[in-house]
């Protein structure tokens, strides 16, 4: 069994990334093990063989085909991710940051627990001040669908539906995905106030709620209903987005009237 550090040195040597001392180190090892030397020589010959493969020119018609298939219009730049988005991005990017975040989050949870939930605390939390919560999965079968959008591609199959009833707006999400995705619902917080999220048993992933935005993360099977309360007569549509690997793979506009 070859040691991992020599495997790394072999990779780097083939890619021309070893420092002179690393090259010497590898050479010393290879000189001491004829089997490893034969193995490395073969790998190097394999890599050299690949140099004989040249890039191909795309067909001459392709450029025009591409340009003709795009409708060029000015696009509004997406706003930079908010703090939750940045946090999520950091969490996904590098492991040391991930561990630091987990540690910091654990610390925060511990502090919050001590401050708000410790058993010695006398006063009770005023539940009437809560702005949103997890709820039972509501039955919407008696309501008329206001809008329905189906998404299918990129390994995702799902639908968003909106309903309206007595000052409340409901968004139903039903989705299956091959990969874990993030779903975001963006509403106009001046018109809609988040009420609750009801999720069917077995639905995966986490839900975060921030001003005007509901974010479902780590989802590959989701059946949820988000309830909003209207402020006045809400008119602006709710924007739904599905992200996979940091990229928007679906963007839908859901009418609410």
């Amino acid at each position: 069994m070859m040691e991992e550090r020599y495997i790394e040195l072999m990779n780097k040597e083939i890619d021309g990334l070893n420092t002179p001392s690393e090259s010497r180190n590898l050479q010393t090892y290879l000189n001491s093990d004829s089997e490893a030397k034969k193995f490395f020589d073969d790998l190097q010959r394999t890599a050299k063989a690949l140099q004989g493969v040249e890039e191909k020119e795309p067909p001459s018609y392709l450029r025009n085909h591409i340009l003709n298939s795009i409708k060029f219009t000015p696009t509004t730049r997406a706003s930079q991710p908010g703090w939750i988005g940045q946090l999520a991005e950091t969490f996904q990017s590098r492991s040391f940051r991930r561990y630091a975040l987990v540690f910091a989050s654990g610390l925060c949870v511990g502090i919050l627990f001590f401050v708000f939930a410790n058993p010695w605390r006398k006063e009770l939390t005023d539940t009437t001040k809560l702005s949103g919560s997890m709820a039972l999965f509501p039955d919407l079968s008696h309501l008329q669908v206001v809008d329905s959008v189906h998404v299918e591609s990129e390994g995702i199959d799902g639908a968003f539906k909106t309903y309206r009833n007595e000052g409340r707006i409901f968004v139903e999400i039903a989705l299956q995905s091959a990969e874990n995705v993030r779903i975001e619902l963006n509403s106009d917080s001046a018109e809609l106030v988040f009420g609750s999220v009801g999720r069917l048993a077995g639905t995966e992933g986490d839900v975060n709620v921030t001003q005007g935005k509901i974010i479902f993360t780590g989802v590959n099977s989701d059946r949820s209903i988000v309830t909003f309360s209207e402020v006045g007569f809400a008119q602006r549509p709710i924007e739904g987005r599905i992200y996979e690997g940091g990229l928007i793979v679906h963007s839908v506009t859901l009418r609410i009237k």
Binding site: E55, K56, E57, P58, L62, R63, I66, L67, I70, F72, T73, P74, T75, T76, R77
Partner: peptide, 21 residues
């Protein structure tokens, strides 16, 4: 993003070949 088609054409000319390959 401002709708400049020429800019997209430049990106296309730059990366069409590597993407195709």
């Amino acid at each position: 993003l401002k709708g400049d088609q020429k800019a997209f054409e430049m990106l296309l000319d730059r990366y069409q070949k590597p993407v195709y390959n």
